[in-house]
Design a protein around this nucleic acid. Structure first.
Length: 403
DNA sequence: ACTCCACAGGAATAACCGGGCG
DNA sequence: CGCCCGGTTATTCCTGTGGAGT
């Protein structure tokens, strides 16, 4: 380290500067002015939506693409502009953007739509957060839109998770709404889906209506990711606070998955945090590697921590049983339960929990047949043992069992 | 070629929760 | 108040199956 570098540290400390100057540009919520490599998609979307300014209903639209390909970001920038423009022109357009996955049930989603459209500010509450039948709730929302002659463009993010859990009944009502609505009000749907096979899960009627138009978002290439990251880094970091090599590594790591820009930016942010903690001058490749590990560990930790007690028991039982076939896991599991005087669940339920853990990637399973000795799963933990123990140590139920 | 273990994993159903309806 | 609604967790009962041992 040269004396210049040392001066540099002092200068930064004195002026209150650190590596990062604009942290918010490294979060997923930050939407840049202009989205690189997404012009085509953005103009197509703007084109479709522009019909509201003629007072007509825009076509329903489906957007496809893997996570982190800029779907949500494109929608948000275009919608922002749309709102600004409609304000200037004195046209009222309601554009609720809701995330079906975060809402985590069809009913809560309806509730959020209602909130967004301001149903609950009127007279008295119209749609509550439970208690009504689904049909009733949708009817009330549509009725409201019709009465107020509202122009609504409803954006449903992660629409595939809605259909996976609740089927397409709700979507059916919304796509059909315009026929019933008469003149004055309308509803357009914009669905954002992570899954490319999403359309197959829909009823044909819903499918044709929902995808009057569609756009596919291709994954970013590593080179594109690199450019996106460089641009963000220019905004976020102080001059010379990050090496090109670090940026390239972020791009390469995120590109290896499927061109996930969100992941790339997460990596960059966490790497910066780690570098700052070390009080070094530059974010380098090793910080990016460390960030990768940290992100993985943190998500696993969270998942285990938020799991139900029995899921935790099962997780622990899997780490404790060496052989890892279902019968053995179940036995260690029940003995763990009895140690703390809890009623163990059925084996059927436990296999279900195991397959849930498998889906979360905490555990890997493999069906193997051992001939005479039956057919079973070979279950292994897919995360470091320390992670499991860390996650469980805060739970008082497990404090005695971890030794 | 047949058996039969030790489960996998689907289907139906129940128990429970928070909350609205009349 | 009793009943309905949707959601989640758990139970009960069930049929299906790869391959080591015979």
């Amino acid at each position: 380290m040269s004396s210049g570098d040392i001066d540099n540290i002092f200068d930064r400390a004195a002026s209150g500067k650190s590596l990062v100057k604009k942290r918010e540009t490294l979060t997923i919520d930050y939407v840049p002015e202009k989205l690189p490599f997404r012009d085509r998609e953005a103009t197509a979307l703007a084109q479709t939506l522009s019909t509201v300014f003629k007072g007509a209903r825009p076509s329903n639209l489906l957007l496809f693409g893997k996570p982190g390909t800029g779907k949500t970001a494109v929608v948000r920038t275009v919608v922002d502009r749309l709102k600004k423009k409609s304000g200037e022109l004195g046209i009222t357009v309601n554009v609720p953007i809701i995330n079906a996955k975060l809402a985590n049930s069809a009913y809560k989603m309806l509730f959020e739509i209602a909130e967004n459209l301001g149903l609950n500010k009127e007279e008295k509450k119209v749609v509550h957060f439970t208690g009504l039948s689904m049909g009733e709730a949708t009817d009330r929302i549509l009725q409201f839109i019709q009465n107020k002659k509202m122009h609504v463009i409803l954006v449903i993010d992660e629409i595939d998770s809605l259909v996976d859990r609740n089927g397409d009944d709700v979507l059916y009502s919304f796509t059909r709404a315009n026929e019933r609505m008469g003149k004055g009000g309308f509803v357009s749907l914009i669905g954002i889906s992570n899954s490319l096979t999403f359309k197959d899960k829909l009823d044909p009627r819903v499918r044709s209506s929902l995808s009057e138009e569609e756009t596919v978002f291709n994954p970013y290439t590593v080179e594109q990711l690199r450019q996106i990251l460089s641009e963000r880094a220019r905004l976020a970091f102080n001059e010379g606070a990050i090496t090109d090599a670090a940026i390239n590594l972020c791009a390469a790591m995120a590109g290896r998955e499927h061109g996930d820009a969100r992941k790339a930016i997460d990596l960059l942010r966490v790497a910066a945090e780690l570098a700052e903690r070390e009080h070094v001058l530059k974010v380098e490749e090793k910080h990016v590697r460390a960030a990768q590990e940290k992100i993985e560990k943190d998500t696993n930790l969270e998942v285990i921590r938020n799991a139900t007690t029995h899921t935790k028991f099962v997780m622990l039982a899997i780490t404790k049983s060496k052989n890892g076939n279902t019968g053995e896991v179940y036995e260690t599991y029940s003995s763990l339960c009895k140690q703390v005087e809890q009623e163990p669940l059925t084996q059927r339920r436990v296999t279900q929990i195991i397959s849930e853990l498998d889906q979360l990637g905490l555990v890997s399973t493999d069906v193997v047949s051992q001939g005479r000795y039956g057919r079973s799963q070979k279950i292994k933990v897919a995360v470091p043992l320390a992670t499991v123990q860390d996650a469980l140590k805060d739970d008082p139920t497990f404090s005695d069992l971890l030794l």
